[in-house]
C-alpha cells in the first residue's frame, strides 16, 4: 500500500534528487518549490506526508504548517533544518512536527519518510477498534500473566 508524498523546498536540485530517491516508497511524489504551490497541492490532493524546508524566502515552514493545521489537516510534517533555524523549529513544534532532518545529513531520510507515510495513512483512516481503556487493561493483564509465569519458574 503506497501513499502520496509532498516535498516543499526552494532548491530545485534538492527537489529533483529527493524525488528520485524517494519515489520507490510512494505512490506519487509531488514537489513544490515554494510554500504557496505546496499549499495548493495539499488542498487538491490527499497527502500522507510532507517534507518541508523550514527556511524559504516566501513562506517559512512554520507558516505553511500553521496554514495546513488551520485547514484541519493533521498530515505528518518532516522538517529540513539547518544550523541557525533553531527558533523557527521551536515555533514549528507548536503545530505538531513529526520529524526533523538536519541538513545536509540525509542519512536516515528514507527510514523517516517510510514512517511518515505510514503514520499519515493511519491518521487518514479511522480504524481504532480498541478503546484506550481496553488497551490499558490488556497491557496490564499481559504483564501480570507474564509475571506469574516467571515467578512459577
Amino acid at each position: 500500500m503506497k501513499q502520496n508524498l509532498l516535498i516543499i523546498d526552494d532548491e530545485d536540485l534538492i527537489l529533483h534528487n529527493l524525488k528520485y530517491l524517494l519515489k520507490k516508497h510512494a505512490l506519487t511524489v509531488f514537489t513544490a518549490n515554494n510554500g504557496k504551490a505546496g499549499l495548493n497541492i495539499l488542498q487538491k490532493n490527499q497527502i500522507h506526508c510532507v517534507i518541508c524546508d523550514i527556511f524559504m524566502p516566501d513562506l517559512t515552514g512554520v507558516q505553511i504548517i500553521k496554514e495546513v493545521r488551520a485547514m484541519g489537516n493533521m498530515v505528518p510534517f518532516v522538517f529540513f533544518t539547518a544550523h541557525g533555524n533553531h527558533d523557527l523549529m521551536l515555533e514549528a513544534a507548536k503545530y505538531g512536527a513529526f520529524e526533523f532532518i538536519n541538513k545536509p545529513y540525509f542519512e536516515s531520510l528514507e527510514e523517516i519518510i517510510i514512517n511518515g507515510l505510514r503514520e499519515g495513512f493511519e491518521r487518514s483512516s479511522t480504524s481504532n477498534i480498541l478503546t484506550k481503556e481496553n488497551e490499558y487493561q490488556e497491557i496490564l493483564d499481559m504483564f501480570l500473566a507474564a509475571l506469574k509465569d516467571t515467578n512459577v519458574r
Binding site: K132, E135, Y136, I139, L140, M142, F143, A146, L147, T150
Partner: peptide, 26 residues
C-alpha cells in the same frame, strides 16, 4: 504495576509505549 494502575497515566501516555515498557520488563 503501580504506574499502570495509576489512572492518570492512561490519559498521559501512548498505550503502545506502555506496552513496549511492559515487554522489556518481562
Amino acid at each position: 504495576k503501580a504506574f499502570l494502575l495509576d489512572r492518570t497515566n492512561i490519559l498521559k501516555y501512548e498505550p503502545n509505549h506502555l506496552r513496549a515498557l511492559a515487554q522489556s520488563l518481562i
